[in-house]
Simulated assay, not measured.
Amino acid sequence: MLFTGAGKLLENVYIFSWDVCLTLLNLVTPNKKVGSVIPHGSPGAGGKWPEFVPPGEGDSRSCCPALNAMANHGILPHDGRNIKFTDMNKAVRATYNFAPTFCLFVPTFMAGLLKKNYKTDMCDLAEINLHNGIEHDASLTRQDAKYDPDQDKPYLPFIHELLASATGKDKDGNPMLTAADLSRYSGKRRSEAKATNPDYSLDKFHKMFGSSNSSTLLTIFGGKLGDLESLLVEERIPQGWEPRILARKGLTFLTFNRTVLKVENAIKEESVGPVQSNDTAPLI
């Protein structure tokens, strides 16, 4: 499925019209029960996740912690290679309870960026790291591509700072990230990246994409720090975990974008000083 021009427009109209219908269905159908969000027979059903095995030498990984975690648990091929876009669609939907529209659009978009065919082609996870494709500067979990071209490993100082910025509490008093926390930290990352990376680029599209990525921490993961630490630091899904989205048709674009816009619209970028031209990672 690699359309251009009018064909691409019709494809998008179809996907987003379908998404509206799924959103409406979620409003009138009962939610899935806690403990049974993952489909029966799928990896993670009942909170029982396959064994976690960290990536080894030669394994392919991406800038996306959620996809890396799936490979680390063998839900996607552990070596991260030769993954069919159609298989990625099905696996992401079952693992994270995204709506089928989301799980069709993103791999299709990914295939288009890589000049591949969604229906017939495959990719390695590392191919997703194409700079200013899906990967972008001012990530909350990776250094900019100038300092880390591979993008396959989390940058722990950023992640620890993000988690430490949490101001929310759940009903039991446990710390949680909030939309305001993500907006504040995203603004800090953008400001610092702009000031320290002479090759910095982040257009409006990638700003929205960045806020979409971070918003999954609030939606799919519910902002819970214990779960997020496993996902972001180790790229591991905790035993007993299941998606926090209970909607029967999964998380649709229409519902998801309410969180994305809330995060993005509150981001403020502050001036943090002149650009420093160097070829080493900034200490921030």
Rank of each mutant, 00 (worst) to 15 (best):
S186N: 13
L217F: 13
F256P: 00
D227Y: 07
Y200I: 02
I284F: 10
L67V: 11
D137R: 13
A145E: 04
L27A: 14
M122F: 15
F98D: 04
R244D: 03
M1T: 13
S214Q: 07
S17T: 15
D59I: 03
K8M: 03
K169W: 02
T101E: 05
P54Y: 07
Y185M: 15
I284P: 00
K194D: 00
H78W: 09
R142T: 13
I267N: 07
G74S: 08
A247F: 12
D144M: 12
R184E: 02
H136W: 07
L217G: 05
A166G: 04
K204S: 08
E51W: 06
L2M: 14
P282N: 06
V272H: 09
E270Q: 05
A91N: 11
G187N: 05
P54C: 04
T95E: 01
K188I: 11
L67N: 07
A179P: 02
P39C: 01
D170N: 15
G226W: 06
R93F: 01
I220P: 03
R258M: 06
G133V: 14
L232R: 02
Y147H: 02
A71W: 11
F158S: 07
F209K: 10
A45I: 04
P77S: 03
T167W: 09
P30Y: 01
A195R: 11
R244E: 09
N174W: 08
K207Y: 04
D203A: 15
V275H: 05
T29W: 12
I267S: 04
T216C: 04
T141C: 11
L177I: 04
L251W: 13
F109A: 10
S62E: 04
E135I: 08
L156T: 07
S42F: 15
S215W: 11
T141L: 12
R258W: 12
K84R: 11
L22H: 08
H206T: 09
T196Y: 12
G222C: 01
S201W: 15
T216G: 01
T95Q: 01
L162I: 10
E270N: 12
T108D: 03
G226Y: 06
K224I: 10
P154L: 05
T29S: 09
P107L: 10
K169D: 02
M208V: 12
V20Q: 02
A138D: 03
G112N: 10
L125Y: 06
M208H: 08
K207D: 01
S211F: 05
A94L: 10
I245L: 06
N82I: 05
E161P: 00
G210M: 15
G273S: 06
T101Y: 10
L177D: 07
